[in-house]
């Protein structure tokens, strides 16, 4: 093995706590379209990065900070520089309409990173956020998820609607803004009205969504 590979091995974090794959699901949206939510591997990260890039200069609703940070996080996942991270795509007919990501801190604790809805008006972000909470609680079997918000929209959707517990003394990795926590009890309380979707995704529907393709338009850019 070349020296660089040994060095690289030293640099890569071990993967310990994202040990269960999130099974893809689909949701019928208000328009009748089917959105597929699925976890992606590192091989699919380049298109996720491309999908996020156009939002990096959109100041409105804090898309810029969310997009820039998400870009870095996905890049960090792709290049093995973040420990126990995962990335989900939301796609409609293969088109990327939203992305969420997060990581596991340890076996009991999850950490939500970012949620970005590329297509607006269909509460896609709410569904994608619910999917990652579902992953932490129902598949990784964790007890709590640490959450911060960088936009008023995020604060309304997560902190208020999920009645998150304020825990400012806990340090979230996203820069020390006030931390909130979704506990298992809160998840169980809100899950019936926040989380939906069906499994398995019919083969034909899944095939129509893989590979993912870039969004056709960004309403945020107008």
């Amino acid at each position: 093995m070349a020296l660089i590979d040994k060095m690289e091995e030293q640099l890569r974090p071990p993967e310990e706590f994202v040990n269960v794959e999130y099974p893809a699901k689909y949701i019928t949206l208000a328009t009748g379209e089917k959105m597929v939510i699925r976890q992606i591997s590192r091989e699919e990260c380049p298109i996720a990065l491309e999908a996020v890039k156009p939002l990096m200069d959109v100041e409105r609703d804090f898309y810029d900070i969310v997009a820039v940070r998400m870009y870095a996080e996905i890049l960090g996942y792709m290049r093995y520089r973040v420990k126990d991270e995962y990335v989900f795509l939301g796609t409609i007919n293969g088109e990327i309409v939203g992305i969420v990501n997060g990581r596991s801190v340890n076996a009991q604790l999850g950490m939500s990173y970012h949620t970005i809805a590329i297509r607006q008006g269909l509460r896609l972000g709410a569904q994608l956020f619910a999917a990652k909470m579902e992953y932490h609680f129902d598949f990784l079997n964790q007890d709590e998820v640490l959450i911060v918000a960088e936009s008023p929209n995020g604060f309304k959707r997560w902190m208020i609607e999920y009645e998150l517990e304020s825990r400012p003394e806990v340090w979230h990795e996203l820069g020390g803004v006030p931390t909130y926590v979704l506990t298992r009890a809160l998840w169980e309380k809100h899950k019936p009205v926040k989380c939906t979707g069906r499994r398995p995704v019919p083969e034909e529907l899944l095939a129509a969504n893989i590979p993912a393709r870039l969004p056709g338009a960004y309403a945020q850019k107008k």
Binding site: L29, T31, Q127
Partner: peptide, 20 residues
């Protein structure tokens, strides 16, 4: 708001209670 909801999706679909 410029989107047309599907009558079935917002009333009868299994996901209707969450998306609507």
């Amino acid at each position: 708001i410029r989107l047309v909801p599907s009558l079935h999706a917002i009333t009868e679909d299994e996901d209707a209670d969450v998306i609507n």
